[in-house]
């Protein structure tokens, strides 16, 4: 059957010309007489899908049907009906699923931004209860596109389902060394810690240390700032009471850094302190107002409306009003 491999266009034989399919009457798509979004299908596509519709109607479970779904999936990997039918055949014929892993891997490497291929892979891994190849596969895909959402989702599923957290933080470190702006890698860092040690006091201390060092290197890396805020969600004292973080932001501000992410976090620290009754006078409504104005007018003008909105909310919540400024 591989004689007809659809990769080799020269040798490709249409299904209507294959003797082993002569008993099947192809079934054309049930189109309107008046065309609506009528795709101008190539001959290979129409031929293959006409036979696909015919065997689906017959509910045929056979080797030739399996081969046909391979062609159909290659022509359009997003056709979920084809994949679902292929799974029925794999089960019905009790096929070697390891071979199937290899088949879908090839398509994944070509079409890695596609829901159906990754879902097929997931079902196979579930059936086999064998996650041994998944980390390698996702690393292969991520080596070409380190932010591929499908690959990350598959990797998280495998890690969580089969408890494969070991070594994952090293992998994250590797990716962050390669591109410290890779937000998917930061997210994975959070995922691993959240599902293993949790954000204990000790872990929190280490992670804050790590993140502040990364921010020191580049101060306009939103990924690192967001991760820092994520960490502080686990600090019982809140956003504005961590002495390490406070010392860090003040030092950075004193050094004349005006990264919008720096100013933004100070605004939120002020709002938290003001909301809690203003324990720390360094984080006042007045300071928040000034920062919002700086952001609006100088350092983050595209978000001026947002900073104005924050400014208005300070006036209404703190009771101090903004009129005096």
């Amino acid at each position: 059957m591989s004689d007809y491999s659809s990769d080799e266009n020269d040798d490709y034989v249409l299904y209507k010309n294959r003797p082993e399919w002569s008993d099947i009457t192809p079934l054309a798509q049930d189109d309107n007489e008046e065309p609506i979004v009528a795709i101008d299908y190539t001959e290979n596509f129409k031929d293959c899908y006409d036979y696909f519709r015919a065997i689906v109607q017959k509910k045929e479970i056979s080797e030739r049907a399996l081969e046909l779904t391979q062609t159909a999936a290659n022509l359009n990997p997003a056709n979920y009906t084809v994949w679902q039918y292929r799974r029925d055949i794999l089960k019905g014929l009790d096929k070697d699923l390891h071979e199937e892993l290899e088949f879908v891997e090839k398509i994944i490497l070509k079409q890695s931004k596609n829901y159906q291929v990754w879902h097929h892979r997931k079902v196979l891994v579930e059936w086999l209860k064998d996650p041994s190849k998944e980390k390698y596969l996702t690393e292969h895909v991520l080596s070409k596109d380190a932010k591929n959402y499908h690959a990350w989702q598959h990797r998280q599923w495998v890690i969580k389902t089969f408890k494969l957290y070991d070594g994952e933080l090293d992998y994250v470190d590797l990716l962050l060394k390669d591109d410290i702006r890779n937000n998917s890698a930061w997210n994975q860092r959070y995922f691993v810690i959240n599902n293993t040690t949790g954000f204990t006091e000790e872990v929190l201390r280490q992670e804050i240390e790590y993140t502040l060092s990364r921010i020191r290197e580049i101060t306009e890396n939103e990924s690192a700032w967001n991760y820092l805020r994520g960490l502080l969600l686990h600090d019982k004292a809140g956003l504005s009471n961590n002495t390490t973080v406070k010392a860090f932001v003040e030092e950075l501000y004193e050094s004349n850094n005006r990264s919008p992410f720096l100013l933004a976090i100070i605004v939120d620290m002020c709002l938290e302190q003001v909301g809690a009754g203003g324990g720390d006078s360094n984080y006042s409504a007045k300071r928040a107002v000034e920062l919002c104005k700086d952001l609006m007018e100088k350092f983050d003008t595209v978000r001026a409306n947002y900073w104005q909105h924050m400014l208005d909310s300070i006036g209404s919540e703190s009771g101090e009003g903004t009129s005096g400024n």
């Binding site: 609506i36 979004v37 596509f45």
Partner: peptide, 21 residues
């Protein structure tokens, strides 16, 4: 024009025809 005919480039959306509509 797209409500009538789409080029074969749209084959990858063969399983998304209501989306095209």
């Amino acid at each position: 024009n797209s409500t009538y005919k789409l080029s074969s480039v749209y084959e990858v959306l063969d399983a998304s025809q209501p989306w095209l509509c």
